[in-house]
Design a protein around this nucleic acid. Sequence first.
DNA 1: AACAACGACAACCGCTCGCTG
DNA 2: GCAGCGAGCGGTTGTCGTTGT
Length: 241
Amino acid sequence: MEESKAMKQQPKKNLWKPEEDFILRSYVETHGEGNWATVSQESGLMRGAKSCRLRWKNYLRPNIKRGGMSKEEEDLIIRMHKLLGNRWSLIAGRLPGRTDNEVKNYWNTHLNKNGLQDKRKANNSNSCKKNDDNNSDDGNNKKQKKVINQTCYPQPPLYRDNGADLAHDIQRRNQEENREKQNPSNMDDITSSHYNINSPMIPANNTTFNFDDEPYFDHLDPFFLFEAFGCSSVDASLDNM
DNA sequence: AACAACGACAACCGCTCGCTG
DNA sequence: GCAGCGAGCGGTTGTCGTTGT
């Protein structure tokens, strides 16, 4: 017990101090982003490359927006999460000034919780409390809650299985634009008849694919749909889900 | 007032991917 | 083709402030 008291009195080891922030910020401002491995050595920070990168990306970078999410942002997160699942970096890419970590935390604490509460209401409102009491394993309660969160709300399916990012999407779109210039009629097919706008994840009826079609399958990417058809169409499709 | 429980958020960890030699 | 390395991502954990008892 005394041991735990002593531990409580210890200063936090790992939170960034203002001095450290200052060092990192001035280092990045003079040397630029990247080469995080050398940052800790050259700047004198006793931090790992990952830690420095994360701190810069999430808190020190210019244009980082702090404070609570607006209603619009929250709404966007919810819709994007429906489309993308836990692709936090992609979702954050749609929220200027917000980071993936922030979006992720916000989801886990504010938004996911709502669903959990609904679920609890559906069962017995006291059951979870009871459950917590039974799990008097103290520190494990939080873990228990997390497991509940995950089991109540399985991840929506991913429509891509490897790390897609905006750069990828932009690159591909540029390729499509070039293709369009060469063969304009092709693109009409893609947006209007290959895919059912009201149900954008499903190709329209009577559509068959061969290997030549495969690149177009990438347009099942929700981002494409989001941009091509706008929020309202995606909303409509979500309503039908 | 003291303690426990909870909520929010910062930070870390492990894995994957892409680049380079 | 392959190993090594750095960067990035998502999941998880730790810490602290607030609220409830």
